[in-house]
Amino acid sequence: MRFNILSETPRKNIAYLFLMPAMAAIFIFFFLPVLAALLMSFTDFDIYSLGDMSRARFVGLSNYLNLLRNPLFWKAMQNTAYFVLVGVPLSVMASLLAALALQSKLVRFKSLFRLSYFLPVVATLVAVAVIWRFIYHPRFGIFNYMLGLFGIQPIDWLGNPRWALLALIIMAVWKGFGYNMIIFIAGLQNIPESLYEAANLDGANAWQVFRHVTLPMLTQTTSFITLTTLISYCQFFAEPYVMTDGGPLNSTLSIVLLMYREGFKFWRMGYSAALAFFLFGIILIVTLIQMRFQKKYEF
């Protein structure tokens, strides 16, 4: 007789017992709120409905349509797009450069470098934003000081609508590149040595090796990294909340910051829920595009 944990009927009930706590939590505190948020986005749920839910009325798509008519929404979309389109390539490139440098056989003290590049990743984002707010101080900040060493005139990074969002991007890249660096290092380690040897035999120079061996072999890693970075950059919130409060002139207002304000400051919760679904839609589209891409390049 064979004992098989997998197939006996009573085991089924035991499986449900093991599943229950986590599944209950996820269905009640995740799936249910997602559905509720969807319903909510079709109502005029506001501060009056907070006390008495029956006061919320069905308003169809008007929250979504109002959003599309709201210049603040477009400003937040535009800022988020800028943050993502400038920030993600910068971040991915910084990670790749750091990984390539650390992967070189010539380098000593690898773990020291790797560790120090990684410190910003684990540091609390809010605290980092607080520190960088002072780092960007137009007169005393160390950022302008460092630029000054190269002869660049001081810039009011957080006070000037032209520079504020870029300042947040620089900080975000500084904070996050170490994470993807680790993934790139592992990706590089997976490339078989024989490919490099073959390339060298063919007389390829360093750039050609990078372009025709390293980069193609990293396609999977790069697309994974780009997707996850994109998704997290779409949700930036603490940076503007702590450093600029969305200003100056809404130049750093993000989608999540707008959602937070509408929902939890003005209690226009129906409206805010519609905004949350715009965010969801963007993330969904990005993910689907990436999955397509992934399929196309599978070996």
Binding site: I5, L6, R11, F29, P33, A36, I231, Q235, M259, L279
Partner: peptide, 29 residues
């Protein structure tokens, strides 16, 4: 390690839900 009805379905549902950002749940929560 267990086999139970709709296991794959449930697991797929969970995995695909990972694309939903937490912010969506915050208002009703």
């Amino acid at each position: 390690k267990y086999r139970f009805p709709s296991k794959q379905k449930l697991f797929k549902l969970l995995l695909s839900a990972m694309v939903i950002p937490a912010q969506v749940t915050m208002l009703p929560l």
